[in-house]
Write a protein that binds this DNA or RNA. Structure first.
Length: 1014
RNA sequence: GCAGAAGUGGUGGAAUUGGUAGACACGCUGGACUUAAAAUCCAGUGGACAGUAAUGUCCGUGCGGGUUCAAGUCCCGCCUUCUGUACCA
């Protein structure tokens, strides 16, 4: 019997589905293991071979853990709300639910054919009402919570109301809006109901606020910071402008410190932790208040990380958008300031970012009062100060900050030096460690650290400032002006948001005619006709019925993409529960994800938001741990190996002098021919110019040998012939230049030896139908290769369907792992797959002799046992270290050795199959059943490594001389150092190496190496 | 600019604590089988030099130094590539 991958793989995929082999049980007595892949978005393009890489790795690990006796949870589902389906709906009018469903079907088929051990009974889809019911539920919980800075955790809003009614705001230390007012308990009690709601909204963990948002006119929506790349939308590259809108936000900033601290408790890749740390952007410093001269009511608050340099302040800079600008600008300066403000507003975010070098600004004419010295300092505006960071104002210390320094130099502002023994004539001095403060009153002579402490103390004494930790992390905008997302469970009474009672959830997405924003600029849900909340019947009713008494309008925004993916990992633990988000006993058993695998692009989006929600859920007692994923691995990207053909792009020598260059007549040159031409371009030009030279002179002039000249002449002749076929005389040869245009060829037309199927290429690209192809000497045409991202536009996409068809899922799985370390990005080359495919055939042949299954029950030999146990050891270590590439090599070595040993012993082959089964599950199941087993191999115990089979009595010692290995020598491991040395010195080759010299030293490391020095 | 990762044959990569550099595979070369091709199998394959040959010598892990009996691996300085991030006060 031959190894027939197609038959075998279909058979076992069917078996697994029918027997629900990979269904995770809720048997709480077994140890659990939770392996999760990052939530896939089912795109219309389907999978390419790069996508399953992480899934294969996690699947191997999941299967391995089953062999190790764990109750494994390995679910899969779909992040099925999202922009592409909606964009498609706008273009075609098709309901996004429909296209999403179709995409999921394709996706599922592709996943199934790779043989993943997913527990599909737990599948979730974020766009299913039964699922988003719980996304809405969490939103309500956030609304009903506030963050108590004193307890450092989220609490029910009731405890805040309690505080307000007993002691007003005096006892409240909360994460809240900046502009909250203070009141007493009596005042609180006297507030109207609406006023109370307004106040509470400033404290809730999800809240409405007028925020400056990133508005993308082309997409008609607001984008989060991480959805913007270089000032344009990540999706589609559309421009983004800043705009004020009323939006739901999430008070993630309350968790900044805990999100930072939590990073120390989880096993995540350092680069990922670093980017979260950066994103959170903690900086320690002080808030300082500056009075403005002549404006008693105006105060400028600044945040600084260098309060120790406060005596170096020689001016202040406000962001052009700062609210005080208009107020304090003097009449003389007004025209200039207004012109500058207008000019900055016009500049797009992108321009501002691209243009970091240009220094610009304007003097307001106003002066601030230095809080310590009482001196007057100029107030400027400049666009290097960002309105959105800190307070939108800085105290400028030109001697200690390069940007302030540059600004001061540019505008001729004074640069006082407050550092001892430092020259600041060329640049600012920012080295904290070497700082000694001078010319600074009470700070003179102090180091950075001491000055910091002292100055903050003085500020607090004088009431002009205080020590503060600032975070870059902004509250996350949670509203999107989209159709295809979770609706908010919110209606509005008198402009105040009200939560719909959790028992009425889900609030389902309404039907709309058009998926675009309404004509008056409301979000797409503004098109819905049945979108009002009847508080008496507790149901969604027609908009006509809105009376603002019992029937109210519903929220028109929807939730962002990250809403559904911030809780799905917990929902998988109990996905069909309609009573609770998950039951307590299940979350207590499964707890958290043990291994999470996915791409690094989610570093500051999904992975930060999900951690935030988890911490919130932990605070409110819903989950037992405050980090959702113990260990995380970023799989690298699989890149494509693009193929290029090179089209000659220069002139031709024509028969008819005034004939135009005909664009349909092309010369396409094979890659090795091309490099010969490039290297010897001047020789070709000389050949064309017909300057006859002696061969000897050519060799000398061009420094080439006879063979090269011969090749050059051959190629030259072929080029002439090709030009002639195109009706030209020749290429118009130019000295030093051979113009070419490189164009992508579809990789499916190229074989393992980089040879192009010319006919296929011509059919694909009809404009080259008439082109002449200049081939290699052997008549083949070679493309050149380059590694690029895998993408349709580069024609280097490889589809896993084709691979599964031709080589099978097992080969695909093995090959993806074999390519290289999981975390690294690496290029895909389909030709390499033949290696793992023939490995599978060799494995098959260990069991089959022709059509005959031949497996012996005889006792294995010592060598066979050694091969087996060395493989067990290595493979187990590899899996534990996620070094899957090396275990594939190990399998190959094992099978090569067993083949050489002609081993067909059951006692060897059975454990070998278990080892291989996580990697190549189909062939393992098939051979396992052929050996007479009735049950699946997937839960058979992993073989146990036994050291005794690897114990050696001798060692083949490498004998080196001055560190260079010269020969090896078989010696007993029982020998001690002296005996080894004696044996080595006695060896004739040693004497030959020494040539009579006496060694200075002989290093003997028993069991390892011998090194003779001298 | 800052942060992180990585530079090893023609290619992907291996060498887990400093101890035989290049495992395993692709590709290539030669051979067997075949009318032929594919598939399969066998042998060789880092470079240079010497030798009919067995074999031997030298060079070799981005570059330059250092530590060590011994360095791809450790230390110092530089170069290149990739990834992330950026007027963050």
């Amino acid at each position: 019997m031959q190894y027939k991958h197609q038959e075998i793989e279909k058979k076992w995929q069917k078996y697994w589905a029918e027997n629900q082999t990979f269904k995770a049980s809720d048997d709480f007595s077994k140890p659990k293991y939770y392996v999760l892949d990052m939530f896939p978005y089912p795109s219309g393009a389907g999978l390419h071979v790069g996508h399953p890489l992480g899934y294969i790795a996690s699947d191997i690990y999941a299967r391995y853990k089953r062999h190790k006796g764990f109750n494994v949870l390995h679910p899969q589902g779909y992040d099925s709300f999202g922009l592409p389906a909606e964009q498609y709906a706008i273009q075609t009018g098709q309901h996004p639910a429909k296209t999403t469903e179709a995409n999921i079907t394709t996706y599922r088929r592709q996943l199934d054919q790779i043989g993943f051990s997913f527990d599909w009974s737990r599948e979730v889809r974020t766009s299913n009402p039964e699922y988003y019911k719980w996304t809405q539920w969490i939103f309500i919980q956030l609304f009903e919570s506030w963050f108590n800075n004193d307890s450092n955790k989220a609490e029910s809003i009731d405890t805040l109301i309690e505080k307000f009614s007993t002691s007003g705001t005096s006892d409240v230390n909360a994460a809240c809006d900046d502009d909250v007012e203070s009141f007493t308990a009596e005042e609180w009690k006297a507030f109207s109901d609406k006023k109370k709601q307004q106040v509470l909204l400033q404290y809730r963990l999800t809240f409405l606020s007028d925020t400056e948002v990133n508005w993308c006119p082309a997409l008609g929506t607001v984008l989060a910071n991480d959805e913007i790349v270089n000032g344009v939308s990540e999706r589609g590259g559309h421009p983004v402008v800043r705009k004020k809108m009323t939006q739901w936000s999430m008070r993630i900033s309350a968790y900044a410190q805990r999100l930072l601290d939590g990073l120390n408790t989880i096993d995540w890749p350092q680069p990922l932790k670093d980017s979260q740390t950066n994103w959170i952007g903690r900086s320690q410093g002080a808030m300082v208040t500056f009075e403005v001269d002549g404006h008693a009511e105006a105060k400028i608050d600044v945040f600084t990380t260098r309060p120790d340099t406060i005596f170096g302040v020689s001016f202040m800079t406000l962001a052009p958008e700062h609210e005080l600008v208009a107020k304090i600008t003097t009449e003389e300066q007004r025209a200039e300031v207004e012109a500058y403000v207008e000019a900055t507003a016009k500049r797009s975010e992108r321009d501002r970012m691209a243009d970091v070098k240009t220094i610009s600004g304007a003097f307001t004419g106003a002066y601030a009062i230095h809080p310590f010295s009482g001196e007057k300092v100029q107030i400027w505006i400049g666009d290097y100060v960002l309105a959105s960071y800190g307070t939108g104002a800085v105290m400028a210390v030109p001697c200690g900050d390069q940007r302030d320094y540059d600004f001061a130099k540019h505008f001729g502002i004074e640069i006082p030096n407050i550092f001892e023994g430092v020259d600041i004539s060329e640049e600012a001095f920012a080295d904290k460690e070497k700082t000694i403060i001078a010319n600074s009153d009470f700070l003179n002579g102090l180091s950075y650290k001491k000055a910091m402490k002292r100055v903050i103390y003085e500020m607090e004494q004088k009431g002009i400032g205080y020590g503060k930790i600032n975070y870059r992390l902004r509250d996350a905008v949670f509203s999107r002006q989209r159709y295809w997302g979770e609706p908010f469970p919110v209606y509005y009474v008198d402009g105040m948001p009200q939560m719909i009672d959790a028992k009425h959830l889900p609030i389902e997405l309404p039907e709309v005619e058009k998926y675009l924003p309404t004509e008056d600029g409301r979000p797409p849900l503004g098109n819905a006709e049945v979108w009002a909340w009847d508080t008496e019947k507790a149901t969604v009713v027609s908009n006509d019925l809105i009376d603002h008494k019992t029937i109210f309008p519903l929220e028109l925004n929807t939730m962002p993409g990250w809403a559904g993916s911030s809780q799905y990992f917990n929902r998988y633990m109990d996905p069909r529960n309609n009573e609770e988000i998950f039951s307590k006993d299940k979350i207590d058993y499964w707890k958290q994800v043990d291994l999470y695998i996915g791409g690094s692009e989610h570093a500051t989006g999904h992975l930060l938001y999900a951690r935030f929600w988890q911490k919130f859920m932990f605070d409110r007692g819903y989950v037992p741990v405050d980090e959702f994923a113990k260990k995380l691995i970023n799989q690298g990207m699989i890149l494509g190996t693009s193929a290029f053909v090179h089209v000659y792009d220069g002139g031709f020598a024509s028969r008819n002098a005034d004939s135009e260059r005909d664009s349909s007549k092309n010369l396409i040159i094979s890659s090795e021919v091309l490099s010969l031409i490039m290297k010897n371009i001047n020789l070709f030009t000389d050949l064309w110019k017909n300057s006859p030279q002696k061969e000897q002179d050519i060799y000398l002039k061009y420094k080439i040998d006879k063979d090269t000249l011969l090749r050059v002449k051959k190629v030259y002749k072929r080029l002439l012939e090709a030009a002639e076929k195109l009706d030209y005389i020749s290429i118009a040869w130019l000295r030093d230049i051979f113009p070419i245009r490189s164009i992508h060829a579809d990789v499916s037309f190229v074989n393992a030896s980089d040879e192009l199927d010319i006919e296929a290429f011509k059919n694909w690209r009809p404009e080259f139908k008439e082109a002449e192809f200049v081939t290699e000497d052997d008549g083949t045409f070679k493309v050149s290769r380059e590694v690029e991202k895998m993408s349709k536009s580069k024609y280097n996409v490889v589809n896993p369907d084709d691979i599964c068809e031709e080589f099978g899922a097992d080969a695909l799985r093995l090959f993806e792992m074999f390519l290289g370390p999981l975390e690294q990005s690496k290029p895909w080359k389909t030709s390499g797959i033949s290696g793992v495919y023939s490995f599978l055939k060799k494995l098959w042949k260990l069991f089959y002799n022709g059509d005959q299954l031949e497996v012996s029950d005889a006792a294995p030999t010592k060598d066979e046992l050694k091969t087996l146990h060395k493989t067990i050891k290595k493979v187990e270590e590899d899996i534990e270290n996620f070094s899957f590439n090396t275990s594939v090599s190990t399998f190959m070595i094992a099978v090569n050795e067993l083949t050489a040993q002609k081993c067909n012993k059951r006692d060897i082959l059975e454990p070998l199959l278990v080892l291989i089964s996580p990697y190549a599950p189909h062939i393992a199941e098939e051979l396992w059943s052929k050996l007479g087993h009735e049950n699946t191999i997937s839960t058979v115990a992993f073989p146990i490594f036994d050291e005794k089979h690897l114990v050696e009595s001798t060692k083949n010692y490498p004998i080196s001389f001055n560190g260079k290995m010269r020969f090896t020598m078989e010696l007993s491991l029982d020998l001690n150092k002296e005996e080894i040395e004696a044996a080595v010195m006695a060896h004739e080759k040693t004497q030959a190496q020494l040539q009579g010299r006496t060694p200075k030293k002989v290093i003997v490391v028993p069991g390892k190496i011998v090194n003779i020095v001298g």
